[in-house]
Computed example of a mutant assay.
Amino acid sequence: MNIDRFRGVCMHAVQYFGKTSRKQLAQEECAELIQALSKDMRGKKHNVEEEIADVLIMIEQLTHIYDNYKIEKYREEKIDRLNKLME
């Protein structure tokens, strides 16, 4: 997938549908991922991969709403912490 196209479509979605709409849809998509993971863990038919894709798309849209500097700062801190846990 072309990353520039991906980001552009996500940015346009925020502009087109509005921030509130994207936040609500992100909540719904996260809930659907939780449900799919629960089914998988119980050994039932699931669509985890599809729901991961939906959540990743929504996360990209959220990065066009919230402060990317803060997001990157927290992501770096948390990945460092995760790495230290595995040392």
Results as ranks from 00 to 15, higher is better:
I59H: 00
Q61S: 08
N2M: 10
E77I: 15
I3H: 14
N47D: 15
S38A: 12
N2A: 06
L62M: 13
M86Y: 14
I57L: 07
E77D: 10
V9L: 06
H46I: 03
T20D: 15
A36Q: 11
E51H: 05
G43D: 09
G8V: 07
E51T: 04
L56C: 08
L56D: 02
N83C: 05
I59P: 00
F17V: 02
D54H: 00
E87V: 09
D40I: 04
G8P: 07
E87W: 11
A26K: 02
R75C: 08
E49W: 10
S21T: 06
N47W: 00
Q27H: 09
C30G: 02
A31P: 01
I65G: 00
K44W: 07
E32A: 11
F6P: 01
I52R: 00
K70N: 08
N83G: 13
V55L: 01
E32N: 04
I34V: 14
A26E: 05
E77T: 05
L62P: 14
Q27V: 15
L82R: 07
H46F: 08
Q24Y: 15
E49L: 14
L82V: 15
H12D: 13
Y69S: 08
K70C: 08
Q15G: 06
R7G: 01
L85K: 06
K23M: 15
S21Y: 10
R81H: 04
V14R: 02
D4C: 10
